[in-house]
Design a protein around this nucleic acid. Structure first.
Length: 309
DNA sequence: GTAGCGTTAACTTCGCAAAA
DNA sequence: TTTTGCGAAGTTAACGCTAC
């Protein structure tokens, strides 16, 4: 499909959604998949295309898309699904192709992170996502809510120790943190991974781009993933966050997300953004966006949804 | 031979809320 | 009251290579 035919298709869907009658579930789901680049686009192959993709969807899963989670996915954007495809009937060649595409997705992701076009975060939908730099100050502001950077009262003991180490070293991998803090992995859980995830969730740590092995599993970097102090790496974005209000930040996040996703139920919005927005704040944001005619409330079948206009 | 590297998909179970 | 759908939480297997 060419770029122009894709834009035409997207425009057609948006036109249909603008009709007075409520959209059918099939129409609106198809519009969402096109808008999230899950359908109707050529596979992205270059850094420029990856940049355009992230700008257009604002938030993208680092890895595969999941049924029921209305988010774009970098892996899906580089990977046009095959027609055949029962997982257990894949050929060796198809498996190799898939691995190559995963490698390309990770390389493009690393490029976006290296140029700080996208920042990896783990505060949306319980998944690792890349947020576009335009959206990052709002997410940072809503997640931190003015807490001081030295306010570690709510952190676990392991996270406090890991943060202290990172402040000293400025950059470290999970393996380095493990050996410095002498925290052994348990059979069921890894205290270092948990502590680093906790710090990333608090937006105190940033995980940067890593090398992609030429052979083997692309996301298993030989040298580990580099963890850095968030506000040191992203000083400009943190400064921008300081100038926001809750209302402005919430409207930016909800508005930009819906522009990419076309629609979502309030319940889904609350579930995806629960780490930095309450259900009430989301409702209020939807009201404001609705008053500005940026979104409208509608129904798809029995479900109430917020639709981007 | 084994641990370490990082993450996902798939699955199960349970609970809750909305609609019929 | 029952049915249905959704979300949350937890578990497990899988992946390929390297260093010890």
């Amino acid at each position: 499909m060419t770029a122009s035919s894709c834009e035409f298709l997207h425009g057609l869907f948006i036109f249909r959604l603008g009709m007075k009658t409520s959209p059918s579930a099939r129409d609106i789901e198809a519009a969402q998949r096109v808008s999230l680049w899950l359908d109707g686009h050529d596979a992205i192959t270059t850094a420029a295309e990856a940049k355009k993709f992230l700008k257009s969807v604002s938030i993208a899963l680092r890895y595969g898309a999941t049924e029921g989670l209305p988010l774009a996915s970098i892996y899906a954007a580089v990977h046009v699904p095959r027609e055949s495809a029962a997982k257990n009937r894949e050929t060796q060649k198809e498996r190799e192709q898939d691995r190559e595409l995963l490698r390309r997705a990770i390389e493009l992701t690393n490029g976006l992170m290296a140029y700080r076009e996208g920042i990896e975060i783990n505060v949306i939908a319980d998944r690792l996502v890349l947020a576009h730099r335009d959206l990052l100050p709002a997410i940072y502001f809503l997640r931190r809510r003015g807490r001081r950077l030295d306010d570690t009262a709510n952190l676990s003991a392991e996270a406090k120790r890991a943060l202290a180490l990172l402040k000293q070293k400025l950059i470290a991998t999970a393996g380095e943190v493990r050996s410095h803090l002498r925290l052994e992995r348990g059979e069921r859980h890894d205290p270092v991974v948990e502590a680093l995830s906790e710090l990333q969730r608090e937006m105190l740590l940033d995980r940067g781009p890593s090398d992609v092995p030429k052979t083997g599993i692309p996301y298993l970097s030989r040298d580990g993933y580099p963890y850095r102090i968030f506000h040191e790496v992203h000083r400009d974005l943190v400064a921008k966050a300081g100038k926001l209000t809750v209302k402005a930040a919430a409207d930016l996040v909800i508005g930009r997300y819906l522009k990419g996703a076309v629609y979502a139920s309030p319940r889904k919005l609350a579930s995806m953004f629960k780490l930095f927005l309450s259900a009430e704040e989301i409702d209020e944001s939807v009201e404001r966006l609705s008053a500005k005619k940026a979104v409208k409330l509608d129904r798809v079948g029995r479900t109430e949804v917020v639709v981007s206009r």
